[in-house]
């Protein structure tokens, strides 16, 4: 069953067609990777799916309902969470508070409850704290809980961002180049972590340039080039796909097609 399904999604910035009629599916419980050269439109596609950008045309279906035109916070509440290509932690909070923001989806105290510290709010706050510490522990960074987020290394930021995304209890997680900027051992840890996330029943859509990671982890791979989908299949199929090989091993597709 497809958890996420896009149909002829299209987005242009001025004259530049960043996403050009992309249709693809993400099967429930799988790890699907989205690859393509720089500027292929991967991040833009993420932004369309998560509601940060409205598509010019096309539809996004999540859990068998259309979420086209939904606001990002509505899509997040529906069970889709994400990380960003540039880790975007909240700089004035400590690490634990950053993860606690992720629990916003799963809690509902309002202004009055919080201002008056009603008993229900206090209990909820304790649950938020405990669950967030658990997520931090899951990514192995519980000992950093009271650090200011701005004091972390790049790799640690990525992990905290992942914990924050997991704190929303997503059914689907979108990771935008989680391995970029990580060293070899951190990359290995990240790979293990992604597998553990999948074991929790979370469906994953991964954008990544590290091919060994993509080929090692993915159940299926979608290849974007100049905003358009040029191939889709299992890692083995993709590795043997002529077009993909051409795109990645020099020589533009257009040139080849024209010549």
């Amino acid at each position: 069953m497809a958890l996420l399904e896009t149909e002829t999604l299209r987005k242009s910035f001025g004259g530049l067609l960043a996403v050009d009629g992309v249709s693809f599916k993400v099967e429930v419980g799988q790890i699907t990777s989205l690859i393509g050269p720089n500027g292929a439109g991967k991040t833009t596609l993420f932004n369309l799916v998560t509601g940060l950008l409205p598509p010019d045309r096309g539809t996004v279906r999540f859990k068998d309902q259309s979420v086209t035109g939904w606001k990002p916070h509505q899509i997040a509440r529906a069970g889709m969470s994400r990380t960003f290509q540039n880790p975007s932690l909240f700089g004035r909070m400590n690490v634990l508070e950053n993860v606690m923001v992720g629990r916003h989806c799963c809690s509902d105290s309002g202004f009055w409850g919080c201002a008056l510290r009603l008993p229900s709010q206090k209990r909820e706050e304790q649950r938020i704290r405990a669950a967030s510490l658990e997520e931090l522990d899951f990514v192995g960074l519980a000992y950093l809980a009271s650090f200011p987020a701005s004091a972390l290394t790049f790799g640690q930021r990525r992990m905290v961002e992942l914990a924050r995304a997991l704190a929303t209890e997503p059914e689907m997680l979108l990771l935008d180049e989680p391995a970029s900027g990580l060293n070899t051992s951190e990359k290995r840890e990240l790979g293990d972590l992604i597998i553990r996330v999948r074991k929790r029943g979370v469906t994953i859509l991964l954008v990544e340039h590290d091919m060994s990671m993509v080929m090692g982890l993915s159940d299926s791979v979608v290849v974007l080039h100049n905003g358009a989908k040029i191939a889709e299949g299992t890692p083995v199929e993709i590795q043997n796909d002529e077009k993909v090989v051409r795109v990645y091993l020099g020589g533009e597709v257009e040139n080849v097609a024209a010549g």
Partner: peptide, 22 residues
């Protein structure tokens, strides 16, 4: 509280805050 964190997150990064369901 939860509300305060939501407010701070707007200040620090509105897109990320949105994507966390705020």
């Amino acid at each position: 509280s939860r509300v305060g964190r939501a407010l701070k997150s707007i200040h620090d990064g509105e897109k990320a805050a949105n994507s966390m369901g705020i």
